[in-house]
Simulated scan of single mutants.
Amino acid sequence: MQSNQRGAFSGCFGINRGHKLYPYIKGVSHNFQKQYDPKEAIEKQKIQQKQRYYERNIRRLKYARRQNDVASERKFSQAIRGYQSKLREIVKNNDFLTRQYDREQIISPNRAVIEQFRRDIRYNMTRKKITDKVSDPISKPELNKITKNFRKSGGKIFMGPEVDERLKNIGAEASVIGDDIMMISSGAGRAAIHEELIHIKQVRYYGAPSSDKDVFLREIEAGKLLLKNATKWNLTHKEIEDTKLLIKKYTMI
């Protein structure tokens, strides 16, 4: 056992080792354990380390993409797809490897909120998209100004790639959770922000919606308030027309 460096970093029972002890009786015991070729094991480890390298680079690029502006997004996305292609190839060519998608993800500060949004989606109130035509995104200074009172009262705003993806999946520009969380897509316009602030006030006044009918009535009320304040809030012609269509849609349901 001394030659095997028991307990040492690279020896038997060291860190990340899978060694086990079995009783041995001379002339009676037999070794039925699967035998491995040391050279083959080392080669497989090298290939697996290459897989880990690709995964690390995907995480690094995803984090860099989040920190940079929209203009740089395409460059980072192409680089990410390049490493993902290499991962698919190395897994395809080595049957002892499996694709581990969780190793390609970065930890998101929005993850808990995203999960809550996923669970509570049934009666969520959202600013729905009417067409695929992109709204004029609200500027960061204007967003901060409009939501100042909401944030002072303890409200939180969540934005980012995960939020964009979740809202895209339900065809919305923005949404609320309860009376203190707003989720806003990167392409949301003024109407979406004002509408979600109205929904926040509705929840604080009426309580959480308890049925689809309740949601529809609140959407209609919010739409009418948007039209009433369209000039004051400087809504675009598209936002006004979309709001009219949404009111009509919810009225006919």
Score class of each variant (00 low, 15 high):
Leu97His: 09
Asn57Gly: 11
Ala79Asn: 10
Gly187Glu: 11
Val91Ile: 10
Tyr54His: 08
Glu165Leu: 09
Arg127Met: 12
Arg59His: 03
Asn149Pro: 00
Glu173Ile: 00
Phe13Leu: 12
His19Ser: 14
Met252Lys: 13
Tyr24Gly: 09
Glu173Asn: 15
Ser211Asn: 07
Ile146Gln: 05
Ile177Ala: 00
Asp180Gly: 15
Ser72Asp: 11
Ser10Tyr: 14
Gly187Phe: 04
Arg103Ala: 05
Ile247Met: 13
Ile42Thr: 12
Ile247Trp: 12
Arg74Pro: 00
Gly18Tyr: 13
Lys145Arg: 10
Val215Tyr: 10
Ser72Asn: 07
Gln2Tyr: 09
Gly189Ser: 07
Gln49Ser: 12
Ile157Ser: 12
Leu197Cys: 06
Glu196Asn: 14
Lys26Tyr: 07
Gly223Ile: 08
Phe76Arg: 04
Gln45Gly: 10
Asp214Arg: 03
Asp132Cys: 06
Ile25Glu: 05
Asp242Thr: 05
Ala112Arg: 15
Tyr250Gln: 06
Gln67Tyr: 10
Leu97Val: 10
Leu143Val: 02
Thr126Glu: 07
His19Met: 12
Thr98Trp: 02
Phe117Pro: 04
Ile80Ala: 07
Ala112Leu: 14
Lys46Leu: 13
Gly82Glu: 13
Tyr63Asp: 09
Lys128Ala: 15
Ile107Ser: 14
Ser139Trp: 08
Val203Gly: 03
Arg127Ala: 13
Glu241Asn: 12
Gln48Ile: 02
Phe158Ser: 06
Ile80Tyr: 06
Ser108Phe: 09
Ile184Ser: 03
Lys248Gly: 08
Asp37Met: 03
Ala230His: 00
His194Lys: 03
Leu245Thr: 04
Val28Asp: 00
Arg17Asp: 04
Gln105Glu: 15
Ser10Val: 10
Tyr101Gln: 06
Ser175Gln: 02
Tyr53Arg: 10
Gly154Ser: 01
Glu196Ile: 00
Gln45Cys: 09
Trp233Arg: 09
Asp180Met: 05
Gly178Pro: 01
Ser210Thr: 09
Val113Trp: 03
Thr231Gln: 04
Ala188Tyr: 06
Phe32Cys: 01
Gly14Ala: 08
Asn144Met: 11
Lys248Ser: 15
Lys133Leu: 05
Val91Asp: 03
Lys75Cys: 09
Met182Cys: 14
Phe216Asp: 14
Glu162Trp: 04
Ala172Val: 13
Gln67Trp: 05
Lys50Tyr: 03
Asn149Thr: 07
Tyr250Ile: 05
Asp69Arg: 07
Gln67Gly: 03
